[in-house]
Design a protein around this nucleic acid. Structure first.
Lengths: 191, 191
DNA sequence: CGTTCAGTTGACTAAGGTCAATTCCCGTGG
DNA sequence: CCACGGGAATTGACCTTAGTCAACTGAACG
């Protein structure tokens, strides 16, 4: 596990002393996941927040029998199902490694400990949530007024890594189109 | 301004002493808005968080010349453009009263003061953001996999107040369909 | 009253979905 | 290392949903 990567990922949210960071670090657990392995399966309580140190993670919902991908996370990305994690209720999400991945796990207990021992992390938690909100709002706006082709082009432009590393049918489920349609779109724009 | 309404609206997020609440209350400003009056216009910095004590507020974006309504807020609802409010940058949103409304304003300065004087409010800020995130995620999910008719029925079922109080073309812009289509949907389902 | 803006309706178009048949990879086991 | 099997991607024909353009009705407010 790359300690520095973790430090860098936190720096936009909180400036920590060595001591504070080390305390935070001591609360983490580390785990390896194989390709297609699940970090969380719907119906279970999401006990951890996940930090992707290496690899590629996605979360998705199953709605009327179909997978709807919510987001992809690469090296340096944080994710948890807030609702389940915070309220300790069964999650409706699935979190899955799409590549062989190294992940840091922060349990809710540890996070609460963190909030108490280092109050600065309350702020950190708030900023993470606010940040998640902004990202999601952006996605929502894009989705409710752009065509499938425009959404694809936007993704291509803003996050080419997703196009490069994620299998196409997952991208389709993220963009809200069928794999066939995405294939036609790609053909049309000459990708 | 109904002090008790404000207290009730806060209670899910923070249990405050009389003293803490009074300090919070002392930081607020109060303002009346007429029907169609703007609380914020795109291009300006969003200097305040808004609490709707009475009336009906919406926020919207203008995208390719069209209004896209993000959300409606009734009595008891909070809203601010986080991005603009937090980062002190020009907002891309418009916030507007749809009915004659009484609104409480909390400036960023006041909020920062609050965070310092009553650290409990860091938690409050975090919970508000997390809550906003959950609401938005729900909307995003609904939108990317339900048909226009299903979205309308869902809104009708979950928030009948919106259908009752909001003019139809705003609902259309919220649901992501044209007013003509919404009219046809309503005819089809016999509303 | 009359002007204006919201809502309705009709005819047509276009985007994306559905069903189905291949083809193309790519990982696994022999 | 090669062959095979199965999931992923592509393509075609057709269908459904929502958008577009346009005319008309209705209600609301000055």
């Amino acid at each position: 596990m790359d300690k520095q990567l973790l430090k860098n990922a936190l720096s936009p949210f909180a400036s920590l002393t060595e001591e504070e960071f080390d305390f935070f670090y001591s609360l983490l657990k580390f785990k390896e996941f194989k390709r297609k392995e699940m970090l969380l399966t719907a119906g279970n309580v999401c006990k951890n927040a996940f930090f992707t140190a290496k690899g590629l993670i996605r979360y998705y919902h199953v709605i009327s029998g179909e997978e709807v991908t919510g987001q992809f996370f690469f090296e340096g990305g944080w994710y948890t199902d807030y609702e389940s994690f915070l309220l300790n209720i069964p999650s409706s999400q699935n979190i899955q490694a799409l590549e062989k991945s190294s992940v840091a796990l922060l349990s809710n207990d540890s996070l609460q400990k963190l909030y108490i021992e280092v109050p600065k992390f309350e702020r950190f938690g708030r900023l993470i949530a606010e940040n998640a909100y902004l990202g999601l709002r952006k996605k929502t706006e894009i989705y409710t007024h752009l065509s499938a082709e425009e959404r694809y082009l936007k993704l291509l432009q803003e996050r080419p890594k997703v196009i490069q590393r994620v299998p196409q049918h997952y991208i389709a489920s993220y963009l809200g189109v069928k794999p066939q349609s995405l294939s036609r779109i790609r053909k049309r724009i000459g990708a």
